[in-house]
């Protein structure tokens, strides 16, 4: 198995300068702005990696951006600290995901989410992390992720997470 099965005529590629990223419109200005102006810069600096879903006409139908991060666990009361790790915990972050308005309703968001989690799983075979964190830009994005039963990160209502055991189980079953 090489990955998520895409609809005929669609392909998934790493973000490149030649792709028409400035024409992408998912209806959410913050997400558009990320792809138009920042995603490539961050990728060039190795801060994040973006993959774009190209439609048959080479337009960008969707994209997602993955990054790494950490959850700070350093300042716990001593009673708790004995049981818990005393270091920042590594996490994978699904930082951005968007589907073009021209292709919304075609379930491409589900495919992009599945492929991004698959990428995380495969990376996790080499570089360990404890969870995938999903950043939600708004309530709509949050409800999209919550359809798949991701839990809220405590104290962060717009961050959901999936622990690595669950991720592995999803790839196994």
């Amino acid at each position: 198995m090489s990955g998520v099965v895409l609809p005929p005529g669609f392909s998934l590629e790493p973000l490149q300068r030649t792709q028409p990223r400035r024409h992408f419109d998912c209806g959410q200005s913050e997400v558009n702005d990320w792809l138009h102006t920042k995603a490539l810069q961050h990728q060039d600096k190795r801060l994040s990696a973006t993959k774009v879903l190209l439609a048959g006409d080479s337009a960008i139908a969707g994209f997602y951006t993955l990054a790494t991060g950490q959850v700070d666990f350093g300042d716990l009361p001593s009673e708790l600290a004995r049981k818990l790790p005393r270091r920042a915990l590594p996490v994978a972050i699904l930082a951005w995901l968007g589907v073009s308005v021209a292709h919304q309703g075609e379930k491409l968001g589900d495919l992009l989410l599945a492929q991004s989690l698959r990428d995380c799983y495969e990376a996790g075979q080499t570089f360990a992390f404890v969870a995938v964190i999903l950043d939600c830009v708004d309530d709509r994005a949050k409800s999209f992720y919550q359809r798949w039963d991701f839990a809220e990160l405590p104290g962060n209502p717009y961050r959901l997470f999936l622990n690595s055991q669950t991720l592995a189980a999803m790839m196994r079953s």
Partner: peptide, 29 residues
């Protein structure tokens, strides 16, 4: 720095969630 800060209570809740058994919901399947 892509570092997520949690309060001690939130860290504990997160840690417990990380230890939870990997029982998949129908949606996750």
């Amino acid at each position: 720095d892509q570092t997520i800060q949690l309060s001690p209570d939130e860290q504990l809740a997160f840690w417990q969630a990380l230890q939870a058994s990997a029982k998949l919901s129908p949606a996750q399947k």
